[in-house]
Design a protein around this nucleic acid. Structure first.
Lengths: 194, 194
DNA sequence: GCGATAAACTGACCGTGGTCAATAATAAAA
DNA sequence: TTTTATTATTGACCACGGTCAGTTTATCGC
């Protein structure tokens, strides 16, 4: 017999996530300690792991929140310039932290079911596919493949570019990032023509 | 004044890597403990971290060995069937373990300079590009973009498919893998025609 | 050969992610 | 309300990656 979930359960979870949001903002994902999270949330450490299987699932949940909001704010691209801007925005979001790329690689697929990252990816693909479907009859896209497939391929290219933009500390971050963006643009052109 | 590197240094490094290879074969990357590595190698723990900045760099070095060998064994694809086979082989190698995907995401770019993963990726791209360059004039590839760019995009698609093939334990691995392979094939067709 | 100096190695120690048997709080049954 | 069953929480504890001051071993100039 399953009982209804207690109100305090959700409250505890929210306190943990709120503390996580604060700490992420203060020191990034890599600087987020579970000890600090439970301290701020006012719970015991065991409670944290009763709510989240491990630290990475917790981080992935927070990341899903952020990225979902950012993706929701993106327009459906109406032309190639729009499209490039949208892809650049997603690239920027993905490449922001090294942890972001790692978390996406691990949890954007079936392994992250229920965390929200997969839904966020789907939402982004959906948005791109809508734009592509409208652009194809106008001849703005050379490739006549299924919009959904093209959109998924575009996301793969963005992700690859974001991964290749990760650089060691003290490296020339700006240069590496610029190269990654150029790479993304070249691959996009190869896929869609133009 | 820099002195020449001592022979024992290389010997120690080799012993560590040999122990790592054994343990990887026995229990996979996720089951590899640094304590066990140094025990088998007959060194102190500090020695391990004098040779490798952290556990992940050690794993990436081992992974680079494996993947480089597997990539070197691949043929230059002569037609579309060949190409699909080569991509499937790379996909299989990438998707073998969840750690593989994570390590590639982190160390295949500038962050992994000197570990060999980046060179392995370059070698794979080079091989694909050679095949594509020969296939384009024969009309076997619809897309006329630069072979090098196409090859890099293909690697991005393979990586994306491998990442999306990661599934939670006790999930239906075969089904998830099959879906990922179908996805890869669809994206490849979208990029190259056919 | 013999110091002097740099490189390699050591292992006790620490920080932090993660566990689990015990306890408290809540919802359902009596 | 009181009792019972289930869920939520606790915090001492452990495992393991990573550090560093100190020691040993090699290479160099003489």
């Amino acid at each position: 017999m399953t009982r209804k979930v207690q109100a305090r359960t959700l409250a505890t979870r929210d306190r943990l996530l709120a503390a996580g949001r604060e700490l992420w903002a203060e020191g990034g994902a890599s600087g987020l300690r579970t000890d600090e999270v439970v301290l701020r949330a006012g719970t015991a450490k065991g409670t944290f792991f009763a709510h989240f299987p491990d630290r990475d699932h917790f981080l992935a949940t927070l990341l899903a929140e952020q990225l979902t909001a950012r993706v929701a704010a993106l327009p459906v691209p109406a032309d190639r310039a729009d499209l490039q801007a949208v892809l650049a925005a997603i690239f920027t979001a993905f490449a922001e932290e090294a942890d972001t790329v790692a978390l996406l690689a691990r949890f954007s697929g079936p392994a992250g079911a229920g965390l929200g990252l997969d839904l966020m990816i789907c939402a982004a693909i959906e948005r791109l596919a809508q734009g592509l479907a409208a652009m194809q009859p106008r001849g703005l896209v050379a490739n006549r493949a299924e919009p959904a497939v093209l959109a998924e391929a575009l996301m793969a290219l963005v992700f690859h570019a974001a991964a290749s933009a990760q650089c060691p500390l003290h490296g020339d971050r700006a240069a590496v990032r610029a190269r990654a963006e150029a790479l993304l643009q070249a691959m996009t052109a190869a896929l869609l023509g133009g």
